[in-house]
Amino acid sequence: MSLLKEDPLLLEAFRRGEPGALTRVYRAYSGHVARFLSRTYVSRGPGGLARVGPLDLEAAHQETFVRAFREQARHTYDGVRPYSLWLNALARQAAVDVLRAAGRIAREAVTLDDTPTAERLASNSPSPEDRALEAETRELVQRFLSGLDEATRRLADLRFVQGLSQERAGLVLGLSRQELRTRETKLRRAMTDFLVEEGWLTADAPNALPSAAATAAVMALLFPHFVP
């Protein structure tokens, strides 16, 4: 896909910085930039190759487009090369700056583009850290799914993995919307409990009622002479 290459009018409007054109370009390439940032190793961090994690994705994504939409950048793009490659170069540099600002890589770190070719070649496959992270997360997911009965596992697959809507998942499973909601509530509660047990989340569930101590504190604040 090369939106700007195929549409000269859009390219002209883009160069003039018209909001409508910028919006079209942003929408067309937002996913591409997010995926590129998430999967590409952009620098060497203290623990090896560094890439943008979920926490820094939004910052790096926005920084990329802010740089790409600057007047100078808009005019520098020649309209011949694929715009996605142009964005990749900007994204790589923006990612390094974001990671550097967040302290995840050294201030002196440079992009892998500026390192010798041999080191760049090594970045094409997942780093050992990412392999370990994936293995740990995958194992956690499998352990959670294996603790469910067959019907609930199917529901988890449709809703969490395949991302179907409740309506469509209900059709596939032959359940009414209300039945599906009830089962899904149980599934979500089971998942929360599982993550709390595994130490991934705290026990402070969103549906928890205020504790007696908290209630007493508020009562004491409101009614200083109140004695329960």
């Binding site: 909001p19 910028l22 919006t23 942003y26 929408r27 937002s30 996913g31 997010a34 995926r35 998430s38 999967r39 890439r51 979920p54 994705l57 939004e58 994504h61 926005q62 487009f65 802010v66 939409f69 997942p126 990412d130 992270l133 994936e134 997360t137 991302g163």
Partner: peptide, 21 residues
């Protein structure tokens, strides 16, 4: 873990646009 979820992609597209513009 190196691919954003559909929810993340949708969120980036909608939330980031205004800030960038």
């Amino acid at each position: 873990v190196t691919e954003p979820t559909p929810g993340e992609l949708e969120s980036l597209e909608s939330r980031g646009l205004l800030a960038v513009l």
